[in-house]
Simulated assay, not measured.
Amino acid sequence: MKHLVSALTAVLACGGAAAQGKPDMGKFLATGGVSQVEGAGGGGITPWALISGYGTRDSWGANAHTTRLATQDYKLDSYGVAMGIADRLEISLANQEFKGSLAPLNLLNIKQDILGVKVKVAGDAVYEQDSWMPQVAIGMLYKRNKGVGGLGTLGVSNVMQLGARDDHGYDYYVAATKILFEQSLLLNGTLRATRANQMGLLGFGGDKGDSLRLMPEVSMAYLVNRKLAVGAEYRRKPHNLGVDNEKAYYDAFVAWFPSKNFSLTAAYAELGDITVFNPKKQHGLYLSAQAGF
């Protein structure tokens, strides 16, 4: 946390002038990534070291996204905004809403707000093609669960009544991203320290564990052409709750970038079990649209 605050202070001091200029849209197409389901720039389920927006080191950029992930029995909607400053600092805000559709959780409704900060600390994924050094960024996501709706008849209105220790918490991560233009590849590895249950939708910590645990996340994308990318992601998660047999997430995606102002991402996602009340693997379609400048 101390290193993140120091880096953030330095970027704000150096990038203040850049933030006052007009967006220059100077970065290469697709090099800002898309909006991750928690609001950060990256893939669909894991943050990358890339900074959101198309502003260069002399400018800034911003975008807004809306995302829906629908499985057999649940729906997750996410929307939010992100800003990249001087291609060094990213600030994001997102809201998630999780709903059930199968009894006894057919009325389930859980909302969560997420504030994200990411700082590039080393390397450049685009311009350092003669080096194997990846772009490296550190980040933090602060998440606050807004309660459990639809389960009043069961006497449940808060995630702590499901066994979680807290209804708010932090994720800390370091991400390394390398773009290999000659091979048309993007490679990313992220290491996240977290105690979140299902990204925080079911709270933080629980009867099976309450400490920060390091969880690996990986992504790979192949650039079919300048406007189209296909790839896959994997995200491991902790298992803290007895009522939730939590498993890893993974997906296969297609991302289309018709212009720097708009992108569309579609994916097939596997989410594993969600709760013991509906013990079957959840899988379905992910669709996300992003507009920016």
Rank of each mutant, 00 (worst) to 15 (best):
G80Q: 03
M83E: 11
M83V: 15
A86H: 08
D87A: 07
L89S: 10
I91T: 12
N95C: 02
F98W: 12
F98C: 00
G100Q: 06
S101Y: 07
S101R: 08
L102V: 14
A103S: 09
P104Y: 07
L105R: 08
L107S: 14
L108I: 00
Q112I: 02
Q112S: 02
L115R: 11
L115N: 09
V117Y: 09
V117R: 09
V117A: 11
V119N: 03
V121W: 07
E128C: 03
Q129Y: 10
D130V: 00
P134G: 06
I138R: 01
I138E: 04
R144V: 12
N145G: 06
K146V: 00
G147N: 03
G152T: 00
L154D: 04
L154H: 04
N158W: 07
N158P: 01
V159N: 01
V159K: 00
L162I: 00
A164G: 02
R165T: 15
R165V: 15
D166F: 13
H168P: 09
G169M: 04
G169E: 00
Y170N: 15
Y170L: 15
Y172W: 13
V174T: 13
V174A: 14
V174H: 07
T177W: 10
T177I: 06
K178I: 10
I179P: 09
L180T: 12
Q183S: 09
S184C: 14
G189D: 07
L191V: 10
L191G: 12
R192T: 14
T194N: 11
M199F: 15
L201E: 01
